[in-house]
Write a protein that binds this DNA or RNA. Structure first.
Length: 254
DNA sequence: CAATAGCCCTGGTGGC
DNA sequence: TGCCACCAGGGCTATT
């Protein structure tokens, strides 16, 4: 399940391959993944366009095209976005294949097909509600201990649920939320507003730390995650808690 | 506001 | 070996 570090690794890998590449065709094998606009408008907005930037917001990947449109992906559980060299074998679960002028391809593959794809002009990105409501992300200037303290103080939800809510912090999922809590020494079932000032500081530092380490390790691969070149990450070797036991503390439904 | 259930989905797994 | 219930779990919606 790609979280912010995994998506960032994908972004970096793809940026190096795709900037200034032209998309010459879009083979849409599973149209229902495209949530906006309709399939015809989608193709028309993308084909013939050149990719100018590869950006990331939270767990969203955004390809800025030379017509001002953004090609947006959310990988959800099992989405993979890979650059595939001309003639090389493509993922068996490919759902959308973008042919590039170089002869290579950008392949969106997704086993469980829960991912979402959009094309929208910059000024219409608000239509993607999850993107519009995304909170500050770890390692950003906006994500300060003060911010965290302020928001936590008003929330009676459990701290792990809080961390998973993208409105409050953009980019954490199960793995890094568990890890951050473990590093900070805070039980996942604690009520958010009961965290003491010192715990809030530890949590803030821990969130930044685990995200930075995840990125440094090339992401975490349990089963499905691959980077933009189809390779696994290795942060799973350094995890403290996630996937290591089945006690209520680490697996309670949040 | 918070918690919960249901939905979207497919493949891997474990039980029998 | 084959069948099947169950689980994975991000994010959204509807309900309590």
């Amino acid at each position: 399940m790609p979280e912010m570090p995994e998506v960032e690794i994908i972004r970096r890998g793809l940026a190096g391959k795709l900037v200034d590449c032209q998309i010459i065709d879009a083979d849409i094998l599973l149209p229902r993944l495209i949530k906006w606009p309709g399939i015809d408008d989608f193709s028309a907005s993308v084909v013939g366009r050149t990719i100018k930037q590869v950006n990331r917001q939270g767990k969203y990947l955004l390809f800025v095209l030379d017509n001002g449109n953004n090609l947006v992906f959310h990988l959800r559980m099992t989405g993979r976005l890979c650059w595939v060299a001309a003639g090389a074998e493509q993922d068996a679960y490919r759902r959308i294949v973008f042919a590039l002028d170089s002869g290579d391809s950008l392949v969106y593959a997704d086993t469980r097909t829960l991912g979402t794809v959009y094309v929208l002009p910059q000024e219409d990105l608000w239509r993607i509600s999850g993107l519009a409501s995304l909170g500050p992300e770890p390692l950003s200037e906006a994500f300060t201990a003060e911010y965290l303290s302020l928001v936590l103080a008003k929330k009676r939800t459990k701290i792990k649920s809080f961390l998973l809510n993208q409105k409050y912090i953009g980019g954490l999922g199960n793995i890094y939320a568990d890890e951050a809590l473990a590093v900070a020494g805070i039980h996942p079932l604690r009520t958010a507003e009961t965290l003491l000032p010192d715990e809030v500081k530890r949590l803030h530092a821990a969130v930044n730390q685990v995200i930075a380490e995840g990125i440094a390790d090339g992401g975490t691969t349990f089963r499905d995650y691959r980077n933009g070149e189809g390779k696994a990450g290795h942060h799973q070797e350094r995890l403290l808690v996630y996937g290591r036991d089945k006690s209520p503390a680490s697996t309670a439904a949040m």
